[in-house]
Amino acid sequence: MEWLLYVSLLIIALAFVILVVSIISTLKSLKQTMNSVSTTVDDLQTQLDGITTESSNLVHKTNDLADDLQRKSDSLNSVFEAAHELGVTFQNMNQSVKRVSDSVSRQADERSEQAAKAVQWGNVAMELWSRWKKTQAKEAAGRTR
């Protein structure tokens, strides 16, 4: 029976060796996996740093663009104000021209009446002149006979 004890110890020793070998191979595999995960995390960190830098640059460019847009918008405001003032000036000028035109039209109406009267008096004067001439011509013809 003693040999049974040796065989049992041998089986236990072999089982222990197999267990240790399988644990060692599992640990080696786990070490490789952990190294791979570590490399992946390092790569992700590098990429994340690059994305952070690019995002920061993009934010700065966006802010610069917004500032530029604000400056251009402010300069356009002055153009629109000048256009508005020009419109007001044209409106004032149109009102002035209308007032002058109305005044000239009123004076023309007044003077047209005076001109019509002058033409009438001129016609009367011409008629009188023409009659006087005819009378003079008749008297001259009467004296020569």
Results as ranks from 00 to 15, higher is better:
residue 111 R to G: 04
residue 81 E to P: 02
residue 102 D to W: 01
residue 87 G to L: 04
residue 77 N to S: 12
residue 85 E to A: 14
residue 98 K to P: 05
residue 104 V to F: 13
residue 92 N to S: 13
residue 90 F to E: 12
residue 125 A to Q: 03
residue 130 S to I: 00
residue 99 R to S: 14
residue 110 E to Q: 13
residue 91 Q to F: 05
residue 95 Q to N: 15
residue 124 V to A: 07
residue 130 S to M: 11
residue 116 A to D: 10
residue 128 L to C: 04
residue 114 Q to E: 15
residue 96 S to E: 00
residue 86 L to Y: 00
residue 86 L to E: 01
residue 80 F to I: 08
residue 121 W to T: 11
residue 80 F to P: 01
residue 106 R to G: 05
residue 101 S to V: 10
residue 88 V to N: 11
residue 126 M to I: 09
residue 89 T to C: 02
residue 123 N to E: 05
residue 78 S to C: 08
residue 112 S to I: 01
residue 130 S to R: 02
residue 117 K to W: 00
residue 120 Q to G: 14
residue 127 E to F: 13
residue 115 A to Y: 14
residue 94 N to V: 04
residue 96 S to H: 01
residue 102 D to M: 10
residue 79 V to E: 07
residue 118 A to C: 05
residue 123 N to H: 03
residue 121 W to G: 07
residue 124 V to E: 07
residue 127 E to Q: 08
residue 132 W to E: 12
residue 129 W to D: 06
residue 90 F to W: 08
residue 107 Q to I: 14
residue 77 N to T: 09
residue 117 K to Y: 04
residue 104 V to K: 08
residue 105 S to G: 08
residue 125 A to E: 03
residue 124 V to P: 00
residue 103 S to Q: 14
residue 95 Q to K: 03
residue 92 N to M: 09
residue 114 Q to P: 03
residue 110 E to D: 14
residue 79 V to Y: 05
residue 84 H to D: 13
residue 77 N to L: 08
residue 107 Q to L: 15
residue 127 E to I: 09
residue 125 A to K: 02
residue 118 A to Q: 05
residue 85 E to S: 13
residue 109 D to M: 02
residue 80 F to D: 07
residue 94 N to M: 09
residue 120 Q to V: 11
residue 93 M to R: 15
residue 117 K to N: 03
residue 122 G to N: 08
residue 82 A to Y: 03
residue 77 N to W: 11
residue 122 G to T: 09
residue 83 A to G: 07
residue 120 Q to E: 14
residue 119 V to K: 09
residue 115 A to C: 09
residue 100 V to M: 07
residue 112 S to G: 03
residue 119 V to W: 05
residue 103 S to T: 12
residue 118 A to H: 06
residue 129 W to Y: 10
residue 85 E to C: 01
residue 120 Q to C: 04
residue 95 Q to F: 06
residue 120 Q to A: 12
residue 108 A to G: 07
residue 118 A to E: 08
residue 118 A to V: 08
residue 99 R to D: 14
residue 118 A to G: 02
residue 86 L to H: 00
residue 90 F to A: 13
residue 81 E to T: 11
residue 109 D to Y: 04
residue 96 S to F: 00
residue 130 S to P: 00
residue 94 N to F: 12
residue 106 R to T: 10
residue 80 F to N: 04
residue 87 G to V: 03
residue 115 A to M: 15
residue 96 S to L: 00
residue 111 R to C: 10
residue 105 S to K: 11
residue 132 W to V: 03
residue 89 T to Q: 11
residue 78 S to I: 09
residue 128 L to S: 01
residue 81 E to W: 02
residue 124 V to S: 04
residue 120 Q to D: 15
residue 85 E to R: 14
residue 105 S to E: 06
residue 97 V to A: 14
residue 113 E to S: 06
residue 93 M to Y: 15
residue 92 N to P: 05
